[in-house]
């Protein structure tokens, strides 16, 4: 076997050649002192690179910084959810104020007609899921609480209105 060059020895050391070649290279190493010297130098270089990166200074405050940044991100996500909930509730209140609730059965019939009962059910479940999410948020204690309170007041207000026959007469 002719002495392989440093490119091939690098590949050999990185175990990126097939088993047959690996065995041939290993056998060559046993009988060639020049290649042994080269391989030993390459190994030393590889170990030194590994050691240099391993001993790279890692700032002590890295984890704190990451955790602080994460907390900020979690707050941002939370605020987005609260914003969406409040927008939904505002829309609900506006619809209520404009006495548009009588449109609901019509919308339901349209969904039934166009998308079938499955879609209507899916939408209903989505609404329930949304309410549960808002409820869970409120239980955790957060800015969601006002949203949940607002939802409760709105529901009570609408319920009261219906009881009085407000929307029936609308």
């Amino acid at each position: 076997m002719i002495c392989p060059d440093s490119v091939k020895w690098n590949i050999y050391l990185d175990h990126e050649i097939d088993d047959l070649d690996q065995a041939q290279y290993a056998a060559h190493l046993l009988e060639c002192a020049a290649c042994r010297r080269m391989v030993s130098g390459l190994q030393e270089q590889n170990e030194l690179i590994s050691l240099a990166v391993r001993e790279t200074h890692v700032p002590v405050n890295l984890e704190n910084m990451v955790r602080m940044r994460l907390a900020g991100s979690a707050r941002r996500q939370h605020r987005t959810k609260v914003g969406a909930s409040l927008s939904f509730l505002t829309l609900a209140i506006i619809l209520g104020a404009l006495n548009w609730w009588y449109l609901l059965p019509g919308i339901q019939s349209a969904i039934n007609f166009l998308g079938g009962q499955t879609l209507a059910l899916k939408l209903a479940f989505s609404l329930v899921r949304f309410l549960v999410t808002v409820g869970e948020g409120a239980l955790r204690g957060s800015p969601v609480l006002p949203a949940f309170t607002l939802l409760t007041i709105t529901s009570l207000w609408i319920g009261l209105h219906i009881k009085k026959g407000g929307y029936v007469n609308a």
């Binding site: 890295l62 910084m65 990451v66 940044r69 994460l70 991100s73 996500q77």
Partner: peptide, 14 residues
């Protein structure tokens, strides 16, 4: 690198 690591972890969380 410190900023990048924090950004990547935040992205990982999001």
């Amino acid at each position: 690198a410190q900023d990048a690591a924090a950004d990547i972890i935040v992205r990982l969380y999001e």
